[in-house]
Write a protein that binds this DNA or RNA. Structure first.
Lengths: 362, 362
DNA sequence: GGCGGTTGATAAAACCTTTTATCCATCATA
DNA sequence: TATGATGGATAAAAGGTTTTATCAACCGCC
C-alpha cells in the first residue's frame, strides 16, 4: 500500500540502510557520499515517501505519544471546566515538544496496567485519579511512567502528583472577606458533591481559617444547594446575619448571583459573593465573580514536563507538587463599609440579608 | 522488557502460534485442544501477558485509532465552545465503538498527506477544515478516509462534509422575531470575524429572511462589537428604532445582555435579544438567552459513524450532510405586545431604545 | 608487500504479532 | 493395504524500520 524504504532504495539503486540513514540519520557506522544522498532524497521526494511510524515504534519501542486518561470522560462538554483546561494545558505542552496525544477513557480499574502497557504510549497523565490504594499500587508498577494530575493529592503518594492547595484557596477567601470587614459568611455546598476530596479540603480550609480569625462558623453556616435551591431560599427568607457567601464552585456561585438579582438584592452592595474556580465564566456574570483560581493550565503543563523528564532520565522518586491557589478579585465583593453608600435602591424583599458588619466581630 | 507471546509459549511449552490462536483467535487453520488452551491461558495470566498493539498494528495495518485534527488547536479552553463539543461528540462515539482517539494540531498544510499517512491511524476527522482548494485535493488523495466536521461546507466538495445550516439558523431568528411582533432588529457583528464562512452565512440568512418578510434591513442595521463596545454604545445613545438584537454569537449576546442590564434596560421587557450557538452558557445569563442551536454533538457523532462506515465497506463518494439548526427559546425574547405590560421600572438612561413596534410594519 | 586508517556501502538481525502452509498422528473407509 | 479425513500443533514468512557488524576498496606509509 504505502511507499516503503525498500521502494525508495530500489528507485535510487541503493540499500535500505542507506535510505534510512539519509532520511532519518540513524546508524552511526553508516556513511553516505554526497551524490548518493541527493539521489536518495530525490527518489524519496518523487515517490512521496512517508515513514511508517508504527514500524518505527516497534523497532525503537518509542511512540512519542502520551496518553491522557480521564476518569469519567463521560461528557467533556458537560463536566467541569477544569477537565478542558487539563486537556488544554497537557496538549499545548505536548505539541510544543512534538509529542502526540491520545485520550483514554473508562480505563477499567481491573486492567489499569494492561491499558497503559500495550506499547502504544511512552507515558501517561491521569486526570482526577481516584485515590484507591489498589489502583495506585498497580499504576506505580506500570511499565511506563505515570503522573497524576489532580486537584488534591494523598499525603503519602505512590505516584508523582501535581495538585493544588484547595484548603489554602478556601483560606484566601476567608482572608479576603475579613479584610473587607465581613464577619459572617455563608458556605454554600452542592448536594451530592460533599464527600469529594476537593470539597472536604475546601470546607476544611474555610472552617480552620474562620477559627484562626476568630470568626464564628457553625454547621448553621452551611447550606446545601440542591436542584430547586429550596434550602437556599429558606435561608434567604430567614433573614440571616451573613454579609458574604462562599460557594464551593463557580456554577453555584453564578446561581447565587442570579438568585440575588431576582430577589432585588444588590451584589456587592448588599451581599458579597465568592466562588471557587476562576474560569472565563466568572467574567461573564454581572457583576463579574470574585473567585479562587486553581492554576490548572500551569499544573497540566508541569505534569507533561515531569513526564518528559522521566522519559529522558529514567524514573524518579514519587513526588507531590502542590500549587498555591490565588484569588481573582472581581466585582462581586466589596467592603462592608461601603454597603450603605453603594446601596442604590431599596431592597425589595422584606427579609433580605441583614447588614451587620459588627456582630461577631471579636 | 514486556512479556511477549514467545515468553508465554515457552512457559506453556507450546508454539507462539498456539498462544496467538488461543489468546486472540487468529488463524483459521489452527486448532487447539482444550487442555492446551487452559494451560496457555494459565501461563498468560501468570505472566501478566499484555499484547503489544504496535506489533499487531504493524502486522494487520489497523490501529483502531482515529485522528482528530484541529485547525488552530491553540488553546481549546479559550476558543469557541463548539471545539469542545466536537471533541466530546467524536470521543463518545469512538469510545463506544472501542476506537481510540488521538489529537493532531497544527498539521502543516504542506504535509497534510504525510501527517495522516504515517500509519498511526485508520481515519481522520478534520475539525473546521479550511476551504483552500489545494489542501482539499491533497486530503482527498489521502491513504486513509477523512471526514470534515465543519459548520459550513463548500458547494462542490472533494471530501465528505458534516456541517450545518447557518443561513437557515439565522432565518429562524428572523421568523421568531417576526412572530413576536418585532419589526426592526439590529444585527451585531464582531470585529475581525466578519469574513469567516459562518459569519457570512448567518448575515446572508438574516438579510434574505428580512427581505422575504418585507422587513427593512439596511447597512445601518449592522453594528460592530469591538473591544470597548464603543460602536454599540453609540448606537445605543442614538435612540434606535430596534426592538430586537441578533448577536452573531453567544458571547456577544451575553455582552449585550450585561450592557443592557447596566443601562437599566430590561430584557426582554424593553428589548429582545437572540444569540447564535446555544451552549450551557446561555442557561447562566439572566435572563437565559434565546439562541440558535447547532447540533454539534450529533454532527460529531455522525462524522465518526461515517468513518466507521468507510473503514468497514471501503471508500464512498464524497457527500455533504447538512444539519438544520433549531432555536432554543429562553427568557431573553418576548412579544412586543407585552412590552408595556412587563416594563416594571422606568428606564434610567434617557436615550434607551425607543419602543416602536409598528414602525416599519408593512 | 604488509599494515592501519578511512570512506562508502550493505547484509542481516531484531522488534512482536498474524496467518498461511505444512506436518504428523490417528482413525475410518473402501 | 492404500486412501482420505480429521484433530492437533508448528515452522516460517511478512509487515517496515533501526542498527550493528561486516565488507570492499582505496590511500599512504614504513
Amino acid at each position: 500500500m504505502g511507499v516503503t524504504l525498500k521502494d525508495v532504495a530500489e528507485a535510487a539503486g541503493v540499500s535500505i540502510t542507506a535510505v534510512s540513514k539519509v532520511l532519518h540519520g540513524s546508524g552511526k557506522s553508516v556513511r553516505i557520499a554526497k551524490e548518493t544522498e541527493t539521489a536518495i532524497r530525490e527518489a524519496a521526494h518523487r515517490l512521496q515517501y512517508v515513514p511508517n511510524s508504527v514500524a518505527r515504534s516497534l523497532r525503537t519501542s518509542r511512540t512519542r505519544t502520551i496518553g491522557l486518561v480521564f476518569e469519567n470522560f463521560g461528557s467533556l462538554s458537560e463536566g467541569p471546566m477544569y477537565y478542558v483546561l487539563m486537556l488544554d494545558g497537557v496538549a499545548q505542552e505536548l505539541f510544543r515538544n512534538h509529542y502526540r496525544l491520545t485520550i483514554l477513557a473508562e480505563v477499567s480499574h481491573k486492567h489499569v496496567g494492561g491499558a497503559l502497557s500495550d506499547g502504544r504510549m511512552d507515558g501517561a497523565i491521569w486526570c482526577k485519579l481516584p485515590m484507591e490504594e489498589e489502583v495506585l499500587t498497580q499504576l506505580a508498577q506500570s511499565r511506563i511512567p505515570v503522573v497524576a494530575l489532580n486537584t488534591e493529592a494523598p499525603t503519602n503518594p505512590l505516584l508523582t502528583y501535581v495538585s493544588c492547595d484547595n484548603e489554602g484557596g478556601a483560606r484566601l477567601v476567608v482572608e479576603h472577606f475579613y479584610a473587607l470587614g465581613h464577619r459572617r459568611v455563608l458556605y454554600v455546598m452542592e448536594t451530592g458533591e460533599d464527600d469529594t476530596p476537593d470539597a472536604t479540603a475546601r470546607l476544611r480550609g474555610f472552617r480552620r481559617a474562620c477559627q484562626e480569625a476568630c470568626l464564628p462558623f457553625t454547621e448553621d453556616d452551611i447550606v446545601f444547594w440542591d436542584r430547586d435551591a429550596s434550602q437556599f431560599a429558606d435561608w434567604w427568607r430567614s433573614g440571616p446575619p451573613h454579609t458574604g457567601v462562599f460557594a464551593w464552585n463557580e456554577r453555584v456561585a453564578g446561581a447565587v448571583l442570579r438568585r440575588a438579582h431576582e430577589s432585588g438584592v444588590h451584589v456587592p452592595g448588599d451581599l458579597s459573593v465568592v466562588g471557587f474556580d476562576s474560569t472565563p465564566f466568572c467574567e461573564t456574570t454581572s457583576p463579574p465573580l470574585t473567585a479562587v483560581r486553581q492554576p490548572i493550565l500551569e499544573m497540566a503543563k508541569h505534569a507533561a514536563r515531569i513526564l518528559f523528564e522521566s522519559l529522558d532520565n529514567g524514573p524518579d522518586e514519587p513526588r507531590v507538587f502542590t500549587y498555591p491557589c490565588t484569588l481573582d478579585v472581581r466585582g462581586s465583593t466589596a467592603p462592608t463599609s461601603m454597603v450603605r453608600r453603594t446601596r442604590r435602591k431599596p431592597v425589595e424583599t422584606s427579609n433580605g440579608p441583614v447588614l451587620d458588619a459588627e456582630r461577631g466581630n471579636p
